[in-house]
């Protein structure tokens, strides 16, 4: 994939931070703030984030070497794991001790690095589960179809719309188990969008998705931003990061080691040392091993 030949060059949000750029820099309008979040597994400190803020209505990339603690950090932020210490808040509301499903209801939705498609449900049922508006999900109401039938049809229309964008509409009546690995990733992202989140956290959304579809999904992610959503994603594909991210946060050994606009961060020697490797200018794709397409001209 070559971003320079992309038809629409995304408009980057700039001026997100306040003051000098350094790890933990304050943002003008942070949606998510983490403070002193620390998670230890036995002797191993997996996450030790002193301070980090995620800017609102922007696309932020979280990058870092394998085992840096990115997934663990996601788990901590979304209530799937509890840190040993620390504070973190979403929209100014503290999330400490808030259970995962409540975090999701507040509008903070995450996807999983290891896909969690609901295998023995159809693709459509997977999608419908994402909706937060179905009254028929209450035990009492579920017994009376007239309460929820109509809403279900609305949800279905909405689901088909999203599925079409993700090129899964033809699969809607298949079991999710029959989808390919990449399609499952897509389904999971599509399902997350059904909840109409305020902040989506995607853990390696593009791993295993083919380049053509990646491009259209990038478009889609950019559209999410236009619609006012905030996106935080983990990705090892530097093309993608450079292409759509407004802000990049680099983690290594559990700590935030660098932050900044994509181009700036990738010039940071510490980041090159710890993560990118010195050949990043020649072809980032070969660094991550994810992109095997022949190069069309030099990347920006």
């Amino acid at each position: 994939m070559s971003s320079s030949s992309q038809s629409s060059t995304p408009i980057k949000s700039t001026g997100l931070h306040v003051g000098e750029i350094k790890p933990g820099v304050a943002k003008k309008d942070p949606i998510l703030v983490a403070d002193g979040v620390r998670r230890q597994f036995g002797g191993l400190v997996a996450v030790d984030v002193a301070h980090v803020e995620i800017p609102r209505n922007a696309i932020t990339a979280l990058i870092g070497p394998n085992g840096a603690g990115k997934t663990t950090f996601f788990n901590l932020l979304t209530g799937f794991d509890t840190p040993n210490e620390g504070k973190w808040s979403f929209n100014g509301k503290s999330l400490a001790g808030v259970s995962a499903f409540k975090v999701a209801r507040m509008g903070l939705i995450r996807t999983f690095q290891l896909t969690k498609a609901l295998a023995l449900l159809t693709v459509m049922d997977n999608m419908k589960l994402g909706s937060t508006e179905q009254p028929g999900e209450k035990l009492g109401a579920s017994l009376f179809p007239f309460i929820w039938k109509k809403k279900d049809e609305e949800i279905e229309t909405q689901a088909i719309e999203i599925l079409t964008r993700f090129k899964l509409d033809t699969k809607k009546d298949d079991f999710a188990a029959s989808l390919s690995g990449g399609q499952r990733k897509l389904l999971e992202m599509a399902r997350a969008l059904m909840t109409k989140p305020e902040l989506v956290m995607l853990d390696e959304p593009m791993a295993g998705v083919n380049p053509a579809l990646t491009e259209s999904l990038l478009e889609h992610i950019l559209n999410l931003k236009k619609e006012g959503m905030t996106v935080l994603f983990v990705e090892h594909d530097m093309h993608m990061v450079r292409h759509i991210a407004d802000w990049v946060i680099v983690m290594a050994e559990g700590r935030v080691v660098a932050e900044g606009a994509p181009d700036e961060v990738m010039k940071n020697p510490a980041v090159i040392d710890a993560y990118l490797g010195s050949h990043q200018d020649t072809d980032l794709g070969t660094v991550t091993g994810r992109i095997t397409l022949p190069k069309k001209g030099k990347d920006s």
């Binding site: 937060t132 999900e137 209450k138």
Partner: peptide, 8 residues
């Protein structure tokens, strides 16, 4: 779905 508080 408002099971949370009351159910709890």
């Amino acid at each position: 779905m408002n099971l949370t508080a009351t159910t709890r």
